[in-house]
C-alpha cells in the first residue's frame, strides 16, 4: 500500500529507573488498518500504548501521528491525546458522571463544544455502541461489558485518528466479551484505525490485518494473521500462540464433555 501511515514509531525505547522495558520498537499503522499486538504479560505492551499517547514519555526514539512528530519538543500533548482514543482494560469510566456525561465531558471541557451539541454527539456515540437506553445510568449501575462500551464511546466522541485498546476484554467475564468485541468489529468495518492489545484469537483472526508478536520489549514477529497463526517463523511465537490457543479451548471443551458424560451416567436407570 502506498498510503502514508497514520502512526509511525521509530526505534522506540522506554526505561523505568534503570530497567529498559521497550527496547527499540519500530511499527507503522496504516489508515483503516487493524493491528493486534499479542505477547506474554510483562512484555511492555501497555507501556508501548502509553508511549504512543504520551501518557508516559519515551526515553528514546520518535513517534509520528500522520505527518506530525509527537515526540518533538514543544508539542502540545493535550492536542495530541485528543486525536488518539484510548480504551483501558479497567474501563476507567468517570464514576461521578452518567454514561452520557462520560462521553460529553471531553467534548465540552476539551473541545469546547456547546452543551446541547455535545449531548447530541454523545447520544450518537452511545447509539454506536448500542447503549442509547442507558444514557442516564451511572457506571456503577452498568455491567462490565456495558462499561467497556461506554469507554469506547467516550474515546470515539473525540473523533480520534486512531484508537488504542489495551486488553479491552481481559477484565470481563467470558460471557460479556462478545458484546465488546462485536462493537470493535463494527468499528473496524467502519474503517477505524485500531491498534489492539488482545489475546482474543477469534477476534484477531477475523478482524486484524496484521498481528504483532511482542516479547521482552521487542517485536519478535509480525505478519498477517494467517501467517502468524498457521506458520509462525519464530519458535517463541509458535509456542506462545499455541499455548494461548490451548488455554482458550481447554477452558470449556474437555471439562464440559466430562460433565455431560457424568450427567448421562447418573440419569441411567
Amino acid at each position: 500500500m502506498p498510503e502514508k501511515p497514520i502512526l509511525r514509531i521509530e526505534n522506540l525505547r522506554k526505561s523505568f529507573g534503570g530497567t529498559e522495558i521497550i527496547k527499540g520498537i519500530s511499527l507503522e499503522v496504516l489508515p483503516r488498518e487493524v493491528v493486534v499486538i499479542v505477547g506474554p504479560s510483562g512484555t511492555g505492551k501497555s507501556t508501548l500504548l502509553q508511549c504512543i499517547n504520551l501518557l508516559t514519555r519515551p526515553t528514546g526514539g520518535r513517534i509520528w501521528l500522520a505527518d506530525r512528530e509527537i515526540t518533538a519538543p514543544g508539542v502540545n500533548v493535550n492536542r495530541i491525546r485528543q486525536r488518539i482514543g484510548m480504551v483501558f482494560q479497567e474501563f476507567n469510566l468517570f464514576n461521578h458522571l452518567t454514561t452520557l456525561d462520560n462521553v460529553t465531558i471531553g467534548l465540552t471541557r476539551v473541545l469546547g463544544m456547546k452543551a446541547d451539541e455535545a449531548r447530541r454527539k454523545g447520544r450518537f456515540e452511545l447509539d454506536r455502541v448500542g447503549l442509547s437506553d442507558h444514557a442516564d445510568k451511572y457506571p456503577a449501575q452498568l455491567s462490565g461489558g456495558q462499561k467497556q462500551r461506554v469507554g469506547i464511546a467516550r474515546a470515539l466522541g473525540m473523533d480520534p485518528a486512531i484508537m488504542l485498546f489495551d486488553e479491552p476484554t481481559s477484565a470481563l467475564d467470558p460471557e460479556l466479551t462478545g458484546e465488546v468485541l462485536n462493537v470493535m468489529h463494527k468499528l473496524a468495518r467502519e474503517g477505524m484505525t485500531m491498534l489492539v492489545v488482545s489475546h482474543e484469537m477469534g477476534f484477531a483472526r477475523e478482524v486484524a490485518h496484521r498481528i504483532v508478536f511482542m516479547e521482552a520489549g521487542f517485536i519478535v514477529e509480525a505478519g498477517p494473521p494467517q501467517q502468524l497463526f498457521e506458520a509462525p517463523r519464530s519458535e517463541r511465537a509458535r509456542q506462545f500462540l499455541s499455548m494461548i490457543a490451548r488455554s482458550h479451548n481447554g477452558a470449556d471443551s474437555p471439562e464440559d464433555q466430562r460433565g455431560r458424560v457424568a450427567d448421562d451416567a447418573t440419569r441411567k436407570p
Partner: peptide, 20 residues
C-alpha cells in the same frame, strides 16, 4: 485510573483535577 483516563482524552491537568 480517573486521572489517566481524563488525560487520555486530552484534558489538561487543571481541568482533570477540577472536573474529574
Amino acid at each position: 485510573g480517573q486521572m489517566i483516563a481524563a488525560r487520555a482524552i486530552g484534558m489538561s491537568r487543571f481541568t482533570a483535577i477540577r472536573s474529574i
